[in-house]
């Protein structure tokens, strides 16, 4: 087993395929997605909305509703164990205890009729036998960890009495309740104000270094990626289009989609210019184009792109990309040119 070979690999998603089926129509949400998260590492999944990021996260927790969802292929190895083969009880033991998740909408992700204390306490008692004052102490400590002032009083509050940023902190506290090895954060800052976003991001960084957990961070925001990631996977229409270390992705993007994303970032060096945008939208997962799914929007596209599904190609040093056109045309001239996009320290 691969996972056993390399002890440092905590989570390894291999060739994961997820479909959503309604009658005869099949929406292929994920098509052979592979990525891995190592111990203590922060991995970012980047892509536009609707490209399958959230689905892959839900699959890790076994939270894909079946039906209409189905997982016809692939493996999700967590500490060498295939999550897809676990029973419902084993999954329960995994969720919150070893893998925890922070959702996008702190407004709706907390149950409005239970107090903050009840909801955090429940996350602990679901996996550990803790009671009474000890439980209370642990809840208070968790709230203090995530930077909520006067945590003892907040325990009795209902979610609607907290601000958006505080709610997200409560969500994070819930996720950390059992000190999981892996925390999945699904766009945790998207619904928040920009100033709060920065705070939450910093919170994630401190917590990660303090608790030594791994973080799988899902976002569409490259600024966030530049801030937090060790390694990056770029997703498009249910496939991984490019992967590599943060430096490689930002300084030497080898896929037109990544280039487009980076070019559409505002940056100091581009002041005064019109912002770049990628034409078109992400295809409907039930009606993906043949060949490379990105080719209708791609400025590099050649005829072959609409015919053949591109393979993952090595650009060196763990940097992989699914665009043969860019690789072949640029390797021929033998200058892997630096993209004129912003240097990531710019961001």
């Amino acid at each position: 087993m691969q996972g056993v070979l390399d002890k440092s690999i905590l989570l390894s998603v291999q060739e994961l395929t997820v479909n959503f089926r309604a009658e005869a129509i099949v929406a292929r949400a994920l098509e052979g997605v592979s990525y891995e998260v190592r111990q203590g590492e922060t991995v970012c999944l980047v892509g536009e909305s609707g490209c399958g990021k959230t689905v892959s996260a839900l699959a890790i927790l076994g939270l894909i509703p079946q039906p209409p969802g189905e997982i016809p292929g692939g493996r999700i190895l967590f500490m060498g164990q295939n999550i897809l083969e676990l029973s419902e009880e084993e999954l329960q033991n995994l969720r919150g205890n070893h893998i925890a998740m922070v959702f996008q909408e702190p407004m709706t992700s907390l149950n409005p009729v239970f107090t903050v204390g009840e909801q955090i306490g429940e996350a602990i008692t679901a996996h550990q036998k803790v009671e009474g004052d000890e439980l209370r102490e642990r809840c208070i400590r968790l709230l203090k960890d995530v930077g909520i002032p006067s945590p003892a009083e907040r325990l009795k509050d209902y979610p609607h009495q907290l601000s958006g940023g505080q709610r997200q902190r409560v969500m994070i506290a819930m996720a950390l309740a059992c000190s999981p090895q892996l925390v999945i954060a699904d766009e945790p800052t998207t619904a928040l104000d920009v100033t709060i976003q920065k705070q939450i991001l910093d919170l994630f960084k401190t917590l990660k270094s303090k608790k030594g957990m791994s973080l799988l961070y899902i976002t569409h925001d490259l600024n966030v990626v530049a801030n937090i990631a060790d390694r990056v996977y770029v997703m498009y229409a249910g496939i991984i289009t490019e992967q590599g270390k943060k430096r490689d992705i930002f300084q030497n993007p080898c896929h037109p989609y990544t280039r487009g994303l980076i070019a559409s970032l505002p940056a100091r060096s581009k002041r005064g210019e019109a912002l770049h945008s990628i034409p078109g939208t992400v295809p409907d997962p039930a009606y993906k184009p043949r060949g490379c799914p990105f080719h209708p929007r791609c400025t590099y596209a050649v005829k072959k792109c609409s015919e053949e599904f591109p393979e993952m190609l090595d650009c060196g040093d763990g940097h992989l990309s699914r665009c043969p056109v860019v690789l072949s045309s640029e390797r021929k001239t033998n200058t892997i040119r630096t993209h004129e996009g912003p240097h990531y320290s710019d961001l």
């Binding site: 939270l63 969720r95 925890a100 959702f103 709706t108 409005p112 429940e122 679901a126 996996h127």
Partner: peptide, 16 residues
């Protein structure tokens, strides 16, 4: 609703 998904993600048993 999202909070039901949260409850599942916490690892609570289905009855809860």
């Amino acid at each position: 609703q999202d909070y039901v998904r949260t409850a599942k993600a916490k690892g609570l048993p289905p009855e809860q």
